[in-house]
Structures are given as C-alpha cells and as structure tokens.
Amino acid sequence: MQSFGGAVMALYRGFATTLQFAFQKKPTVQYPSVRKQHAPRFHGLHELRRYADGKERCIGCELCAIACPANAITVIGAENAPDDRRSPGERFAGRYEIDELRCIFCGLCEEACPTDAIVLTPRFEMADYRRGSFIYSKDRLLVPPDAGVGAPPDERPGGIPADLGWVTEQKSTVDIARGYDATYNGAKLKDEHKGLTLQ
C-alpha cells in the first residue's frame, strides 16, 4: 500500500510530464495547408524529362519496363522520322504508360534508364476515385518543353554521390548524438542517455 504522500507525488510527476508537453512546440503538420518535407530521395510520382533543346530524353529502349519488378511500365518504341525528330537517338517512346496503381515506387526504372529520362518526383498526392485514371501515359508523364532539364537523380541534395566511397565510410559508424539533434525534444533525450555510446 502506497502512502498518501507517495500517491500525491506520483500524481504530480504524471501531470508534470503531461503539462510540460503543453508548452513545447507542436509537432503536428497541418497537412492540407502545409506539406511535410519528405526525405531528399523520396520516391513519388514519375515524370519523363527532356533535354535543354526540348527533345525527349526517352529513346524507347524499354530497359525500365524490363527492370520494373511489378511489370507496371509499358513502352512501345517508334522510329524517329528524319523531318520530325522527337529524341536525339534513332527511336523514341511512341507509347509510354505507367500503371501507378501497380507501381511500387522502388526507383529501379530511374536506375535502369541510360538517359535519365524517367525520374521519380517528390509528389505523393496521387489518390483518385476511378481505377482507370491511374494509367499515366505520355500526356501526363512528359514534362512541358519549358519545364527545364531538372536535376539528375544522382545529384539531388542529400542524394547518394556518384562514387560510393563516401557512403561506405558513413555506414561504418553511427553518430548517435547527431540523431538526437535531429529529433524533436532531442537535447533532453541526449542528457538522459548520457554515457550511452554506440561504436
């Protein structure tokens, strides 16, 4: 049986914990008006890029369709006409369709593409009412000619650099203090867990 004073102290400690969160920064992201910043290499909706002169990057090689683990991509190549060149190569994508409902957003199409034509963007709002509206063809995937070239997928901020040496160095140690700094209420947690190091 707990003493009366002990019970009061337990109540005090419990309510103090609750109360201290009332004055801290609210972690809620007010979603429809504010969008959360996802990871730099977040995989969202696809887009087909162009070169600076407006020509399509896609050369219709179908490597993305072969790499796709979900068989979500359909590419049918077509020959470039001499007077109407759509891409710098011999062929271009006559049809390019992605079934976004089947796609698992793994990014293997992005890695397989020899011309960096197919790139996953950070867009995550893709829900819709009808099943048929998820077959994205070139009219929705291809960026407009004035959209610019865009950053290649390997050179995005925070992305994996071209040589993997840096990544293997980083993986060998875990900087636990840096992890605390990145989290909400991190400084307090760091104090509590002082002495805990991970080599």
């Binding site: 992201v29 979603y31 429809p32 969008r35 959360k36 996802h38 976004e100 409902l101 796609c103 698992i104 957003f105 793994c106 995550f124 709002e125 893709m126 829900a127 819709d128 009412y129 009808r130 099943r131 998820f134």
Partner: peptide, 29 residues
Amino acid sequence: QGVDTIVPVDVYVPGCPPTPDGLLYALNL
C-alpha cells in the same frame, strides 16, 4: 488482384506503402 473485385472501392491510393499524408489526401477526397 485488386480488392475492388470483392467490395466497391471509393478512393484508390497508389504507393508502396503510401505516405500517411497520401492517406490523409484520400480521406479528404
């Protein structure tokens, strides 16, 4: 191959898995 073969579906959310914000968007729809 698709739950709409057994129950009528109102909103589809693509993604593997969809982000929580993506699900909130579907709820808004």
